[in-house]
Design a protein around this nucleic acid. Structure first.
Lengths: 378, 378
DNA sequence: TGACTTCGTGAATCCAGAG
DNA sequence: CCTCTGGATTCACGAAGTC
């Protein structure tokens, strides 16, 4: 720690931020969000979760960029002025977020209709590439007491990659699918609001007005980060991001202005335990598994040269050559090429298309590949 | 019809728009959205539903795992050079929409993450007052075929009043509550996509790439318009807004550029029938229902002078005086005032707070009021 | 007829690595 | 930049065909 950012609880000095060479892990930095972010190194964090102010009472929370006070003028101008200052605030922290994020990293922002449209627009303008907007559906929202509107029963999250050409972001597709009864996870998530024992209290009152449920952060971290990753939360608040990061074996970096919230968050995180390795395990996708060429199955003797392969309905056949290529009636090539060829399809995954016969049953090549992987892993 | 806008099928002339004195009801005006809107009078429509282009930025053809092609939106009307040109397009039609809308009217816009943030920002900048964002959750969305993102399973609607000081907009709270098993309607709506018989075909192919389900428009019109109201749809497309407006006894004004879509929509609307009065009847909002003073219940004998009232947990009591005021230990006043007083609350709805005892059970005053209304209505 | 299977399709910013 | 290739990847619903 060598600059204006300071670890929670230590004294602070106001000075020009100097960029530190590396990140202080699993700590809370006290200070203004944008200012502290300026001190963090380029391309250093794997994921950012941001829960910025929702712009509900802007005058109390924000000032113009030049720190001047917003005057009481007529409503329309006043409103425009508020939006403008909120926008500049948003664009400043987004610019820092984009700089700090690794190329493979993604940004999550949560908000409501008061602010989320402005945040989304700013993200697009900065070149973030939107991947999804996610709807957090609340099982137990506060009703609309006056009967003047619909129950505001959701909040919106925006999930974005660093830029349009960054397509290699972290997304644990299969883990999320597993969490959803083996169906692709959708963009609408049903999660209760934070209440009961999870809700942090201080002197009998809620410690933070907008504490997010851990289940929400759990799903986000499971989806878009890996164990050991560094998660930045520039609006740390009561520390939900830190607590869930610790639970899931991720590192966190929190930024928070309010010393009171920091104290609450530190205590909370200290009381949180990392889940054990078994609980941390998650479904990895085939994409992450080591590549196994088909020829290796022939080499290993799992498939014999000259063996006949069939598709699942025995409508097509091909024979295996010693170099791991296939031959059909009029063509030779890879398992994929021949699979595509016999079907007249533009492409084909030979691993799932072709089968070998075993005591009358057809076994897909994919299963033999799994055996190879299990052996070489052991 | 006296200006550049023209009814569907008639000849058109390009000329400077002159504003017409009144609206051509239940017709489709052919032309560019903003240009045609310039010809419509100020403060003349009760509700606007807008389904603008989403500005999707699709690159290559997408194939399903079975190698079939996805028939994506590649229409010219969805092509914009960049965000700036989409924004100026948006701001132009929004400005007209705001001018044309009655003070009591509301605007609905639908979109996805590709465009909705820009639309929402522009609406706020124009002074529209956002009332809710509504999530249309699709029961049967298209999956993400590549396993690269979450299933994009929803679209977002923004519902807004004309300006922050327009609070007397139309909202049929009770009708919506009745549609939702007597629970307050939430901001997330589960509705299937438009398919099957409802989906309009032309030469065996879908007539419009983005036809909206009638159930969606049904709920919107039930919520935010009254029979006889005028509904404007500046992006009329296949005419879902027109068809549902006719069904529900509303008038529509459609604007559409494409003659082919107009032909489809006209035929569709001609084949649509207005629902009968019984089906049309909906719960009258309590705020619109005739006001029933508490004293009227006393007058009617439903509550006896001197009777004791209780809150639902019998923690507080008050006694009824003959003039319809209540008396607690140290104060007299209306049911609302005394309800607030005994709780130490700033305000209280006495109709739901206070109960009378009936054979040991507590019955809220609200239920007795409903009886009065039923009697006086008959 | 009925149960069962197959096929088509929907507002979609939808691949990664080697050479 | 490019091209080429391996190979990973889908849910709900309606219509039509099959047994």
């Amino acid at each position: 720690m060598s600059n204006t950012q300071k670890e929670a609880g230590t004294a602070s000095t106001k000075a020009t931020p100097q960029r530190s060479a590396n990140l202080p892990l699993d700590t809370i930095l006290q200070g203004e969000c944008t200012e502290v972010m300026r001190g963090l190194p380029d391309a250093s964090v794997d994921m950012i979760f941001a829960d910025p102010p929702y712009n509900l009472q802007l005058k109390d929370q924000l000032q113009r960029p030049d720190n001047s006070q917003v005057d009481g003028v007529d409503d329309a101008w006043d409103k425009f002025d508020n939006f403008a200052s909120y926008d500049s605030f948003t664009r400043e922290w987004l610019a820092q977020a984009q700089r700090i994020l690794k190329n493979t990293g993604t940004l999550w922002v949560i908000g409501t209709y008061h602010n989320i449209f402005r945040v989304g627009t700013a993200m697009q303008d900065h070149g973030f590439w939107l991947l999804n907007d996610i709807i957090w559906r609340k099982t137990n929202p506060m009703p609309n007491f006056r009967g003047t509107r619909f129950t505001n029963a959701h909040e919106t999250l925006i999930w974005a990659a660093k830029s349009a050409d960054q397509r290699k972001y972290t997304f644990n597709y299969n883990a999320l699918k597993a969490m959803n009864d083996d169906l692709q996870m959708r963009s609408d998530w049903l999660i209760p609001i934070c209440s009961g024992k999870e809700r942090l209290k201080k002197n009998g009152k809620k410690a933070h007005a907008t504490q997010k449920p851990e289940a929400l952060l759990y799903r986000i971290l499971m989806a878009a980060s890996k164990p050991g990753d560094v998660i930045l939360d520039p609006f740390f608040g009561s520390g939900t991001t830190g607590a869930v990061s610790k639970k899931l074996g991720r590192h966190f970096v929190g930024i928070e202005r309010d010393e009171g919230y920091i104290a609450v968050a530190r205590e909370r995180i200290a009381a949180t335990e990392r889940l054990d390795e078994e609980a941390l395990g998650y479904t990895i996708s085939k994409r992450q598994a080591p590549r196994v060429p088909f020829g290796q199955l022939v080499e290993a003797g799992l498939i014999k040269t000259g063996a006949t392969l069939y598709d699942s309905r025995r409508r097509h056949t091909a024979r295996v050559r010693s170099d791991g290529t296939l031959v059909s009636r009029d063509m030779t090539g890879s398992i994929h090429q021949i699979g595509a060829h016999v079907q007249g399809a533009p492409a084909c995954n030979g691993w799932t298309f072709w089968h070998v016969e075993n005591r009358g049953d057809l076994v897909p090549l994919d299963r033999l590949r799994e055996e190879i992987r299990a052996i070489s892993h052991a």
